[in-house]
Computed example of a mutant assay.
Amino acid sequence: MKKVIITLLMVGVAFGLTAQNIKVDPNIKVEVTPDLKMTVGPDFEIDLGAHIEQAMSSIEGMFGMDFGDEEGRWKEKYQQDTEELEIPLSKPGEKGKLQVESHNGTVKVSAYSGPTVKVKMIKYSKKVERESGENGMRLLSSGGFNVQAEERNNIVKVETEGWNNRVDFEIQVPTNFSLDIKTYNNGGIEIEGVNGEHSVESYNGPITLNNVSGSASASTYNGAVKATFKAVTANAPMIFTTYNGDVDLTVPAGTKFSTKMKTSRDIFTDFENFALQKTTPQKSKEANGYKVKYEDWVEGKLNGGGAEVTMETRNGNIYIRKG
C-alpha cells in the first residue's frame, strides 16, 4: 500500500498537482486495469503506465543515496571501491560486440586503438567506520562487487547482478564494435567514438552518443537523448525516444532519411533540404463501418528521404542538426 501511495504522489508531481490546486470530486472513480489507465469521471482518462513506471524506477533506484546531484557532490558521502578488468578477444582486430546490463549505475563506453576490452568498475557503498558506535560495533563492509564478465567469439558480456550498491562502468572497446547497453536505476549512458550498430536503453537516465558512426536505437524513460554521428549507415532505420526530455540528433550534411516525429512541444532544424509531408492517417474497416485515425505524427524527408528515423518525446523538443 505504501508503494502505491508513493507512486501516486510522484505521478501527481509529474502532472504539476499541488495541495492548493487539487479539487476533489466526490463522484471521482479510479479504475485499475491491466494497462494502467485512470478514469476520472465519464470523459477523462489518463494513461498512467509510463508515469508510474518512471516514478517507481526513480524511487527504487535511490536506495537511500542522493544520486540526483548532477555535480557529483553525493560521491563524497560514500566509499568508492575500484576494480579493473582486461578482457582478451577471440579474434583481435575483427569486429565485435559489447553487451552490458547494469541494474544500478551509469555506463560510459569509449573507443580506443587497443585489441582488448577494458572494464573499470566503481562501486559506491557506505563508508567503512574507523570507530565503534554506541553499541560497540563498527561497519566493516557493505559487500563486494557482484559483476560477471565473459567473452565468446568477440562478443563480450558484462552484467551486474545486485541492486543495492551502485556500480558505474567505464569501458574501452576497439573502434569497430557494436553496442547493446541496458541500464535501470541511475542509469545514464554515454558513448564516445564507437563505430557499429548500437542499441541503447535506459530506464532512468539521459543517453548521449557522441561522434559515433553506423546506426543506433536509443530510448529512455527519463532524460534527454542526444546523438551526434560522424557517419550514418545508408538504409539503416533508427529510433530515438524518451518520455521526459529533448531528442537531439546531429548528422552529416549529406545524410538522407525519412522521418516520423511526435512531441507535445516543438520541432527544430537547421537543414535547408528538409521537407515536411502530409501526414498519412491510419485507415481501417470496422465491423459496421470505417475508421480514420490521426496519431499526432509529423512526417518529413531529409535530402529527399531514405531509411526511416523515428523520433518521439512526450515532454521535450526535437532537434535535427547539420553536423
Rank of each mutant, 00 (worst) to 15 (best):
A224E: 13
L249F: 05
K77E: 13
T116C: 09
T228V: 12
G93W: 08
K260D: 11
E70D: 08
E299I: 01
S141R: 07
A227M: 07
S264N: 14
L48S: 05
G306C: 03
I318R: 00
E86T: 15
E86R: 15
G133E: 01
Y184R: 13
N235Y: 05
T242P: 00
V200M: 01
V119N: 06
G162Y: 00
D47V: 10
A234Y: 00
G289W: 03
A149K: 08
Y124P: 06
I191L: 10
E101M: 13
Y112G: 10
S142C: 03
D248H: 02
E197G: 07
K293S: 12
G214H: 10
E170K: 11
T279F: 00
G304A: 05
P26M: 07
G93H: 10
G105T: 15
K91E: 14
Q80D: 00
E150S: 15
V24Q: 02
Y184M: 09
H103T: 06
Q282M: 11
F257A: 07
T183F: 10
E299V: 01
F271G: 04
V128N: 09
N104R: 10
T33L: 08
N146C: 08
D43V: 05
P88E: 03
W163I: 14
V173K: 06
V212Y: 00
T106D: 00
S102I: 11
N165I: 08
T310E: 12
G245V: 05
T175V: 14
Q80E: 13
P92E: 00
N154P: 11
Y221I: 05
L48F: 13
T250Y: 12
E84R: 15
K182E: 07
G196H: 03
G162S: 15
I52E: 06
R321A: 10
I320Q: 01
K2W: 07
G223W: 13
D168C: 10
S199K: 12
V32C: 04
T250G: 11
Y319Q: 09
V298H: 11
A275M: 10
S90C: 01
Q148D: 01
E76P: 01
V107R: 06
N288P: 01
K283L: 08
G136D: 09
I155D: 11
I28V: 14
E286P: 02
F169V: 09
N303Y: 06
